[in-house]
């Protein structure tokens, strides 16, 4: 907790740069504080780095929650504008056009994953879709952890290409 107080300003500055939003940064750093008070952190080494990692996870969770909310709102407004009757369940369903767009994007992603080099694809699939840690993947494939990281880096780079 002492470390948290000492690093608070550093963390706010970092997450402000990371999210381009000082307000969001304050919220994230506040969430770190809340998480810390519910966790026994006595055994954690490398404390400052831990705070940054904790904050990054908070940041990703918040971003994910916002994306879900946006998807719901979009669907809601679309159903309203087309004048269709709106029920609780239907409000959560995207319009046919939105569904088609989503289908195309999904197809494109699937093709990109399939186009990865075999070992790279194997590492990526094990990590993202089988929830395995890098260390587990390294052991299972008989390669080094840094090789696993390299495959992941290649995969992320390739999959972020050609965004529409």
């Amino acid at each position: 907790m002492t470390l948290y107080l000492a690093k608070r300003a550093d963390l706010v500055r970092f997450f402000a740069a990371r999210t381009s939003s000082p307000g969001e940064a304050e919220d994230i750093v506040q969430d770190i504080f809340l998480k810390l008070s519910s966790v026994d952190d006595t055994g954690i080494e490398n404390g400052a780095a831990y705070l940054y990692r904790l904050g990054s996870n908070v940041m990703l969770d918040r971003a994910r929650a916002r994306r879900r909310a946006t998807v719901r709102d979009d669907a809601y407004y679309r159903t309203h504008r087309t004048g269709q009757p709106v029920g609780e369940d239907e409000a959560d369903l995207p319009s046919p056009e939105a569904r088609l767009d989503a289908k195309q994007r999904l197809d494109r992603l699937v093709r990109s994953v399939e186009a990865l080099p075999p070992q790279c694809r194997r590492v990526f699939t094990m990590h993202k879709f089988e929830d395995r840690s890098y260390a587990e993947i390294a052991t299972l494939l008989g390669i080094s952890r840094s090789a696993v990281e390299k495959h992941m880096i290649t995969a992320l780079k390739r999959l972020s290409e050609h965004k529409p």
């Binding site: 971003a63 994910r64 994306r67 994007r105 999904l106 197809d107 992603l109 699937v110 994953v113 399939e114 075999p118 694809r121 194997r122 699939t125 094990m126 993202k128 879709f129 089988e130 395995r132 993947i137 299972l140 992320l156 780079k157 999959l159 972020s160 965004k163």
Partner: peptide
């Protein structure tokens, strides 16, 4: 931001992508 958006899209559709992969590479 570009890389993060790609990761977000994959994470949000992990189940669908995994199901759609041809001859999925299983560990």
């Amino acid at each position: 931001v570009v890389v993060e958006n790609a990761i977000a899209e994959i994470d949000d559709h992990a189940g669908e992508i995994a199901a759609a992969l041809k001859s999925p590479v299983r560990s």
